[in-house]
Design a protein around this nucleic acid. Structure first.
Lengths: 358, 358
DNA sequence: TTGATCTGCACAAACGATTGTGCAAAAAAA
DNA sequence: TTTTTTTGCACAATCGTTTGTGCAGATCAA
């Protein structure tokens, strides 16, 4: 260290210490030395001094001048949901590797909040946004894109829209899951869905019904229940289903949270998986294999979705390429564990349940 | 809308549209109208126009001028770990409520990365940092504090240090857990620890040994094993423990991930919880109650830790109060479920295990 | 020796906000 | 009416960068 006493706060200080102009310092630090014919001697001096005085350019000033912040916004409905958390991780790591930081926002699955967050990120001048939308309306997102700030959607998507999205092939995933149940002998298969009307939910329902139809099985609308991706819905829906005169022998839960609710309800009824009821879930979780009955599930390629989202967004930002590919669907994988068995006789299930709680 | 055709990008545009100076617009928008004697008429005009043209001040320019970004840095070892994810959520929500955004960083439990992230956040001029440190060394953190950027540590802490921290009382939590096991009749209790030498781990080990001692039980050092908070460590350590001549009747896992590894190993051995082995974990998880044997665990007050971290940090930022209280320890809670039973005879456990895999 | 070309660097204007200070016109006081 | 005070707003500097352009001195060709 040459002068540990001198405080170098900005580029001006550094230039002063070296006795040269800020222009030159800036150019060297930005790797434009040769472009502007800065002599190697000067260039080295600058580099060494920067290291020596531990100088880092002020990103804020840089952002103002360059009109880009090298910051990405990430809006997610619930960061404590492991499904989103692991995608957030990949997104953060991959973005940083490419020189971008991310501003994390939790929309609490609320449309109004999502809208406000889009505004917030806009005023913070992020270079782009990765958004796992609440998914009922997309006008505000489209408007954001119009304003010149690129947006990439993950998980849910806008059917027929102009905004690029990366998502799993939910139709295929659901179809695989239900066919697995059918091939195990199930005929009365319920599904507990999430938010009605949003793309991924519709796709899963379609996968479910198409699987049934393609095997010549009737589609009983009353077996399609639920209205939310949360645990409570899984619980309440399962209770309702099991109280039917003709309860299903298998349940297809549309999310890991719903599955948790199913488990709780089944547990209360004293019903066992897969002896009494078979269950298939969506979204693999590390703990699925340690459940009383390890859960068979449809795994979404989370890492891949997250990684591609970053790549597509950065491509949009850097190359202004208006996203030749506007939507990408990735294949999910059915992970077979031990929550699916052959259907039990209805009577035996009822007796196993004992008295049905109301 | 009066003039939806005119694009208002900055405060100058807005001032031009209104035919007044940017000074006045700025003052009105910052609520300093009366302070600078701006007439109500003008003030209203500005407010309406701002709404009308959907104008939001450029945070970057604002940050440069004000030398504060209203942004907090959050560094976490692994955002996909539900323990950290749920704290991240609380931190984001609470920060936003108070007008701050957060830049999320994942240190991958790596010291070098943590150091670099501290630098990065410094050059991004965050107003403060909440850090769940890797925890082996604290020099770089202290240095960051010296540079004038406030830091609050969560989870792990620096013993005898000057940096404020919020953490659970890990000693008490561990002690409660072990006493619970002792009162169930266990005498050979193993613990699988995390990263050796870091504060929370040491505290837990001390809680473990003190609980043993206070009940007149011997402390067998060979029953204190493990060296990492991950799942692999839980798995390997359990295998080692159960292969002893005199395997423990109970295992205390120092994290939810370690517990997962324990479960996997026990499962492979064909050992049942709590019939063959009792298990207590740290960090409650939503799925703990749905395991084959619902897990008894020490729950850390995550929301409280996260919330207080934000409050303490913001206090540090706003009031420059040098943190009268430098450290806060919150009481954990023992959640009793069904993973602890009376110890089985060693012989029966061995037979239950069948052939021991190597 | 003279003009042309090349080297190596610096001046100063942005980027979009905030703010101390100044200065007219209007209102009040004398 | 004149002076003082108040009202209402604008000028211009500033935050820390980046960058188009300019301008000496050195080098080269003729």
């Amino acid at each position: 260290m040459r002068k540990p006493d001198v405080k170098v706060k900005n580029i001006k200080d550094l230039a002063a210490v070296l006795g040269i102009s800020v222009t030159t310092v800036s150019r060297v630090l930005n790797g434009k030395a040769s472009l502007y014919r800065i002599s190697p001697a000067t260039s080295d001096k600058v580099m060494n001094a920067a290291r020596e005085f531990n100088y880092f350019p002020n990103s804020i000033a840089r952002g103002l001048r360059l009109e880009k912040t090298e910051t990405l916004g990430l809006i997610i409905p619930d960061i404590s949901n492991p499904f989103f958390a692991s995608m957030a991780r990949t997104i953060e790591l991959e973005s940083r590797r490419q020189g971008y930081s991310i501003i994390l926002c939790d929309s609490m699955d609320d449309m109004q909040t999502e809208k406000e967050l889009l505004q917030l990120l806009g005023s913070r001048r992020v270079d782009g946004i990765i958004l796992a939308p609440v998914g009922k309306k997309f006008d505000h997102i489209r408007e954001c894109g119009k304003k010149g700030i690129p947006v990439v959607i993950i998980d849910r998507y806008m059917p027929g829209g102009s905004i690029p999205f990366i998502t799993a092939d939910n139709y295929q995933g659901a179809r695989d899951a239900v066919e697995h149940l059918i091939s195990a002998g199930h005929r009365t298969i319920a599904c507990i869905q999430g938010l009605k009307g949003i793309s991924i939910n519709t796709d899963r329902v379609n996968g479910y019904t198409d699987a049934l139809k393609s095997h010549g099985l009737p589609v009983d609308e009353s077996l399609i229940t639920g209205d939310d991706f949360g645990i409570e819905n899984g619980y309440a829906s399962t209770r309702m289903l099991m109280n039917r005169d003709n309860p299903p022998t298998a349940i297809f839960a549309f999310s890991n949270l719903i599955a948790l609710g199913v488990l709780r309800a089944l547990n209360e009824y004293g019903l066992h998986i897969p002896a009494d009821v078979s269950v298939v879930s969506f979204d693999d979780q590390p703990w699925f294999e340690f459940l009383a009955s390890p859960m068979t599930t449809v795994e979404q390629p989370r890492e891949k979705i997250a990684g591609m989202a970053v790549d597509v967004l950065l491509d949009l930002i850097k190359n202004k390429s208006s996203g030749a590919k506007t939507g990408i669907m990735l294949k999910p994988a059915l992970i077979i564990r031990n929550s699916v068995g052959r259907p039990a006789a209805a009577s035996s299930r009822v007796s196993a349940a004992g008295t049905k709680p109301v």
